[in-house]
Deep mutational scan, measured.
Amino acid sequence: LSQDQINEYKECFSLYDKQQRGKIKATDLMVAMRCLGASPTPGEVQRHLQTHGIDGNGELDFSTFLTIMHMQIKQE
């Protein structure tokens, strides 16, 4: 990932990090990914979360979000 991409991801991540705690809700993951041009299915989002041990009510930090985005873009 280039620095530009990382900055773009950070900007989008921040939109969903409403309390500015450095985390977004798992329920916002799909929308955040789509905001960056990825098109994950609900099943793919579920798999990404399970891979990282996050349940549907959990939260993920930016580095986890980056990893998930990277995996998603590689497979699209």
Score class of each variant (00 low, 15 high):
residue 1 L to P: 03
residue 1 L to Y: 14
residue 1 L to E: 06
residue 2 S to E: 11
residue 2 S to G: 13
residue 3 Q to K: 15
residue 4 D to K: 06
residue 4 D to C: 03
residue 4 D to A: 03
residue 5 Q to V: 02
residue 5 Q to W: 06
residue 5 Q to S: 11
residue 6 I to V: 08
residue 6 I to W: 06
residue 7 N to F: 08
residue 8 E to Q: 11
residue 8 E to K: 14
residue 8 E to V: 06
residue 8 E to L: 04
residue 9 Y to L: 12
residue 9 Y to M: 15
residue 10 K to M: 12
residue 10 K to L: 11
residue 10 K to R: 13
residue 10 K to P: 01
residue 10 K to G: 07
residue 10 K to E: 12
residue 11 E to M: 10
residue 12 C to H: 08
residue 12 C to V: 12
residue 12 C to F: 12
residue 12 C to W: 05
residue 12 C to L: 13
residue 13 F to D: 00
residue 13 F to N: 00
residue 14 S to F: 05
residue 14 S to L: 09
residue 14 S to T: 09
residue 15 L to A: 10
residue 15 L to W: 05
residue 15 L to N: 15
residue 15 L to I: 13
residue 15 L to Q: 09
residue 15 L to V: 09
residue 15 L to T: 11
residue 16 Y to S: 02
residue 16 Y to L: 09
residue 17 D to R: 01
residue 17 D to Y: 01
residue 17 D to A: 06
residue 17 D to W: 01
residue 18 K to V: 07
residue 18 K to D: 05
residue 18 K to W: 05
residue 19 Q to I: 03
residue 19 Q to G: 08
residue 19 Q to V: 05
residue 20 Q to T: 07
residue 20 Q to M: 06
residue 20 Q to D: 06
residue 20 Q to N: 14
residue 21 R to T: 11
residue 21 R to W: 02
residue 22 G to L: 02
residue 22 G to K: 08
residue 22 G to H: 04
residue 23 K to P: 00
residue 23 K to R: 13
residue 23 K to N: 08
residue 23 K to I: 08
residue 24 I to F: 03
residue 24 I to R: 00
residue 24 I to E: 00
residue 24 I to A: 01
residue 24 I to S: 00
residue 24 I to H: 00
residue 24 I to W: 01
residue 24 I to P: 00
residue 25 K to T: 10
residue 25 K to D: 10
residue 26 A to P: 04
residue 27 T to E: 13
residue 27 T to A: 11
residue 27 T to H: 07
residue 27 T to S: 09
residue 28 D to Y: 07
residue 28 D to A: 06
residue 28 D to K: 08
residue 28 D to S: 10
residue 28 D to R: 05
residue 28 D to M: 07
residue 29 L to W: 00
residue 29 L to Q: 00
residue 29 L to S: 01
residue 29 L to I: 10
residue 29 L to G: 00
residue 29 L to D: 00
residue 29 L to V: 09
residue 30 M to Q: 12
residue 30 M to D: 13
residue 31 V to R: 10
residue 32 A to C: 14
residue 32 A to N: 01
residue 32 A to W: 01
residue 32 A to T: 10
residue 32 A to Y: 00
residue 33 M to L: 09
residue 33 M to S: 03
residue 33 M to E: 01
residue 34 R to W: 03
residue 35 C to M: 14
residue 35 C to K: 14
residue 36 L to N: 08
residue 36 L to W: 02
residue 36 L to F: 05
residue 37 G to K: 10
residue 37 G to V: 01
residue 37 G to T: 04
residue 38 A to H: 14
residue 38 A to I: 10
residue 39 S to Y: 02
residue 39 S to V: 08
residue 39 S to E: 13
residue 41 T to A: 03
residue 41 T to V: 07
residue 42 P to V: 07
residue 43 G to L: 10
residue 43 G to M: 07
residue 44 E to Q: 02
residue 45 V to A: 07
residue 45 V to R: 04
residue 45 V to S: 08
residue 46 Q to S: 15
residue 48 H to Y: 15
residue 49 L to N: 01
residue 51 T to I: 07
residue 51 T to N: 02
residue 52 H to R: 10
residue 55 D to Y: 03
residue 56 G to D: 13
residue 57 N to S: 06
residue 57 N to A: 13
residue 57 N to K: 13
residue 58 G to Q: 05
residue 58 G to P: 03
residue 59 E to L: 14
residue 59 E to P: 02
residue 59 E to R: 04
residue 59 E to W: 05
residue 60 L to N: 00
residue 60 L to W: 00
residue 60 L to A: 03
residue 61 D to W: 02
residue 61 D to M: 02
residue 61 D to H: 05
residue 62 F to T: 03
residue 62 F to L: 08
residue 62 F to C: 05
residue 62 F to M: 05
residue 63 S to F: 12
residue 65 F to Q: 01
residue 65 F to L: 04
residue 65 F to C: 02
residue 66 L to D: 05
residue 66 L to M: 13
residue 66 L to A: 15
residue 67 T to I: 05
residue 68 I to E: 00
residue 68 I to W: 00
residue 68 I to H: 01
residue 68 I to L: 07
residue 69 M to V: 08
residue 69 M to Y: 06
residue 69 M to F: 06
residue 69 M to G: 06
residue 69 M to C: 12
residue 70 H to Y: 07
residue 71 M to K: 02
residue 74 K to W: 06
residue 76 E to H: 15
residue 76 E to V: 12
residue 76 E to I: 12
